[in-house]
Amino acid sequence: MAVSQTQSGSPLRAASMVQMEDREAPQNIKMAIYTRGRLIPSLGDAKFRKPVITEIIEKKFEYYTKDILDKHGIFYGTTSAMSGVLANIIFRSSFKVQHEALKTFATLATLPFLSTVVTYKLFVTDALNSGNISRENCILRSILIGFICGVSYPSALAFSKNGQLAVKYHTVPLPPKGRVILHWLLLCQTGMKAMAAPLVFQALFGLLHSSHHYAVCERMRAKAGPEDEPKSQ
């Protein structure tokens, strides 16, 4: 009897195990469907994230490109380059130098341009973008940049470059020992007086240019203000 009970019990256990597996099968299927359903949005998110990331990178690149290549700084740098070319012409005539013209003109046009663009961006453009500068301070900074980077630096650079060429090629009498600077200054008196013209021009251009730049930034800030208020609410 015991043997028959165990034999009869084993089919019952097998049947119950099959039923339990059948009952668990839909749950496993549901879990598989659930996990698959959860994976599909993640793949979709990954697909959607790539265009969003590339768009953000493109916007950042465009913003920084516009910030570096600021047209206001480029305009101001162009006037400094013109002042450098004029200073080179004046001091080459004063020192009677005719050698290495291309090299000196390239140097006198490039270095004042780059120095003015970088200085204007650091002290004027960045301050205007942050809003931590007044109109008077903006004008003052712009005029000082014009004096230093647009007139003083090109004049000193042209003076030293052409003075060295004058000594190298003996285009003017050699100065006495210990009086090199004084001798060169006496030779360039007329040229130094002629540099007063670009000095006045840089002052007027800096005044008008900085006023216009400040007004443009104020208009852009006024337009951006109402759009930002609903977002903050």
Rank of each mutant, 00 (worst) to 15 (best):
D45S: 10
T65M: 07
G73H: 03
D45R: 11
I40Y: 12
G73A: 14
Y63L: 06
R49C: 02
P26V: 10
F48P: 00
I68C: 02
D67Q: 12
F75W: 07
F75T: 04
E21R: 09
I57P: 02
I74Q: 06
T54H: 05
K30Q: 14
P41N: 08
K59R: 10
P51W: 04
I57D: 01
I33E: 15
K30F: 13
L69W: 05
R38E: 06
K59L: 07
D67R: 15
R49H: 06
Q27P: 00
Y63S: 12
L39E: 13
A25W: 14
I68V: 14
N28H: 11
H72W: 11
Y64S: 06
K59F: 03
F61Q: 05
D67C: 00
P51G: 06
R36K: 13
D45K: 12
E55R: 05
A25K: 15
T35N: 14
I68R: 10
A32L: 10
I29C: 06
F75Q: 12
Y76W: 03
Y64L: 11
A32V: 05
Y63C: 01
R23I: 07
G37Q: 09
A46H: 08
L43R: 11
R49I: 01
E24F: 10
T35K: 15
N28R: 14
I29N: 10
G44C: 05
Y76L: 09
I33L: 13
K30I: 06
R23C: 04
I74M: 15
R23W: 11
Y76P: 00
T35S: 14
I53D: 01
E62M: 05
P26Y: 06
K50H: 07
I68D: 04
L43C: 03
I33R: 15
T65I: 02
S42W: 07
M31C: 03
K59T: 04
G44V: 04
I74S: 03
Q27T: 12
Y64M: 04
L43I: 06
G77I: 03
R36P: 00
K30R: 12
Y63I: 02
E62C: 01
R38L: 12
D67E: 13
G73Y: 03
Y64E: 14
S42N: 12
F61S: 04
N28E: 15
F75V: 01
E58R: 12
I57N: 02
F61C: 01
Q27K: 11
D67T: 08
K66P: 00
I74C: 03
E21Y: 06
L43H: 05
K50G: 01
L43M: 11
G73P: 00
K60L: 09
L69G: 03
R23V: 07
G77C: 05
A32S: 05
I56K: 06
T65L: 10
T54P: 00
I29V: 09
I40L: 13
K71N: 10
T35L: 13
F61A: 09
